[in-house]
């Protein structure tokens, strides 16, 4: 089977996370059918890098983020984090490994326990892992709360509902930072927020990344936000990676027709720019029975017979810019491979 390819994986000492052939499938009852949420994707993240993962709902981007955390464990594939293979770890060892990888979720209000005060919420990871004395823990919590711009005094007295959405997201960030993780997986951390607040949270993540030397995986559907925060972007469609590139290059030179669609769908805040005609119709097909060949072919304006039968592999079209497409917008046609099933 033509896979999604691994041409884009880097051979670097600084690779912190390396995911190979990740497959996540969810069975549907006893029907024998399954949801192909993620179908064989590979990517790597260097230390200190921000990898953005973009795509529409149902493309498997959140599932990928959760699979890294083994929530749940992937169906198959390998996840190497800092030299450790996470998929084979025992429950207890995995629990320990998760202290180094933390997660921030989309809805800041429902991801915080409404009945506890905010300081306790941020303190909990420390008390679970018995890091330091109680006084040291409290000091650490107050310090982290100040870093994210929440008044520790107020946090000690208030419950999450007394804070706004943006502040709740700051609290979630504080909770994820308190154990000093190496990597944070942000799953749509700003999509529920107002634009003005969204900018605050994005700036905060950038600052914290520098201060705490973090590595980020930033999952979102809004390419404009992802582009701003990421060094490298992977575009996902229906469980596959379509394109991987540095973020500036991806915007300047989108090669996959799907990336182009995503980019042109973003409304431009300028009335003198004519609204681009929507080039694709409809929505992604069901991941239960994904189309053969390239999964984007039913919606793709450039689809050919080859796209309907042969699945494209990721290949390099210019330095550090990879695309899985037979007829990309730049970089020339894919060489026809002698390939029999």
């Amino acid at each position: 089977m033509a896979g999604t390819g691994k041409a884009h994986l880097r051979d670097d000492q600084n690779v912190l996370l390396r995911v190979e052939d990740l497959v996540v499938e969810f069975p549907i009852g006893r029907t024998g059918l399954k949801v192909n949420a993620v179908s064989g994707i590979s990517f790597d993240v260097l230390k200190g890098e921000t990898l953005g993962i973009v795509g529409e709902s149902g493309c498997g981007k959140s599932t990928t983020g959760r699979a890294i955390m083994q929530l749940p464990s992937p169906t198959s594939g390998s996840i190497m984090f800092d030299g450790t293979e996470l998929t084979t770890l025992s429950g207890e060892a995995m629990r320990e490994a998760r202290t180094k990888i933390q997660m921030i979720f989309q809805d800041p209000i429902s991801s915080l326990n409404p009945r506890r005060n905010v300081r306790d919420i941020v303190l909990e990871p420390l008390s679970i892992w018995k890091r330091g004395t109680t006084a040291e823990q409290l000091a650490a919590v107050d310090k982290i709360l100040e870093h994210v711009g929440i008044d520790p005094q107020r946090a000690a007295e208030s419950k999450p509902h007394q804070f706004s959405g943006g502040q709740c997201q700051r609290i979630s960030i504080a909770r994820s930072l308190v154990l000093n993780p190496q990597m944070i997986i942000c799953d749509e951390p700003v999509s529920a927020l107002d634009v003005s607040v969204q900018a605050q949270v994005v700036n905060l993540l950038e600052d914290l990344k520098k201060q705490f030397e973090l590595t980020l995986v930033f999952i979102a559907h809004d390419l404009a936000v992802v582009k701003n925060i990421s060094d490298r972007i992977a575009v996902m469609y229906l469980g596959k990676i379509c394109e991987v590139s540095s973020s500036d290059d991806l915007y300047r030179n989108p090669a996959h027709p799907y990336t182009d669609v995503l980019l042109s769908s973003i409304p431009v805040p300028d009335p003198t720019v004519a609204v681009k005609k929507v080039v694709v119709d409809g929505e992604p097909p069901s991941p239960v029975s994904p189309p053969a060949g390239c999964r984007f072919n039913p919606r793709c304006p450039n689809a050919s017979d080859r796209c309907r039968s042969e699945e494209p592999t990721l290949r390099e079209i210019e330095p550090d810019h990879f695309v899985a497409c037979h007829h990309p917008l730049t970089g020339g046609e894919a060489p026809v491979s002698v390939h029999f099933k």
Partner: peptide, 22 residues
Amino acid sequence: LLSSIPRLDQPSHSRLTTIPGR
């Protein structure tokens, strides 16, 4: 409000303008 929208034509990691407070 306008300048807090992340724009595609800005290079990545450019500082977004925020509106402080609530």
